[in-house]
């Protein structure tokens, strides 16, 4: 059947009864709205895991204070936070270069997390060792997994952009960037709860 035989249903999107956030595009573009809703449900997911971590914070606090390296992780975190900035530039200019910078920063963050894992495991702290290890590895691991997925999306975007520069739709840039900012925002919470929490 041919797609042009009839009017595309979305030609005249009716106005939304409710406003769905800062970007006016989100309330009109189905892809962006889809990503936004997906992010909302992901937030519930992370909220549940963060609350579990918080519930077990006290019994694990001593271990956390003794083993976590706040300073070093702060530096790697800055890489991730900075990547939100580069991502914003990338979207504004639809620039593959800024995208590449974002990928590098994201990868640096993951590498940093990897080295933190290696160090902890070396000290005998793993997901099965004690309550702290269980909660720590689950929360940071789930976040790391999301960073990884974000990186894959970024690489896909870069590749598409390289192959046919300028042809990638604006919503693709917007969508990936929304997800990336979200992953970043989650780390703000996770970093505060886990790492800054040891300073209290």
């Amino acid at each position: 059947m041919s797609e042009t035989a009839f009017i595309p249903a979305e030609r005249k999107p009716p106005a939304l009864g409710v406003s769905l956030g800062r970007s006016p595009k989100i309330s009109q573009d189905r892809n962006l709205l889809g990503v936004a809703i997906f992010i909302a449900s992901e937030s519930v997911f992370f909220l549940a895991v963060v609350l579990a971590y918080v519930a077990y914070r006290d019994p694990g606090l001593a271990t956390a204070k003794a083993t976590l390296d706040v300073g070093r992780t702060a530096i790697f975190s800055i890489a991730l936070f900075a990547s939100s900035g580069t991502m914003a530039f990338a979207v504004r200019a639809e620039s593959g270069r800024w995208l590449a910078a974002t990928i590098v920063l994201g990868a640096i963050f993951l590498a940093g997390q990897g080295s933190e894992y290696a160090r902890l495991l070396g000290e005998g702290i793993g997901p099965g060792s004690a309550l702290f290890g269980t909660a720590f590895f689950t929360l940071t691991g789930l976040h790391g997994l999301h960073v990884l997925v974000g990186l894959v999306a970024l690489v896909a975007l870069v590749t598409a952009n390289l192959r046919r520069p300028g042809a990638v739709r604006a919503v693709a840039w917007e969508g990936v960037s929304m997800y990336w900012h979200f992953v970043d925002a989650v780390w703000v919470v996770v970093f505060s709860v886990i790492y800054l929490g040891t300073l209290l």
Binding site: P127, G128, T134, T138
Partner: peptide
């Protein structure tokens, strides 16, 4: 639910203690 299932998975498969 997904979060709870992940935690149960960590407990069962990775020796976690949630």
């Amino acid at each position: 639910l997904t979060a709870a299932l992940v935690m149960l998975f960590v407990d069962r498969q990775l020796g976690g203690h949630f």
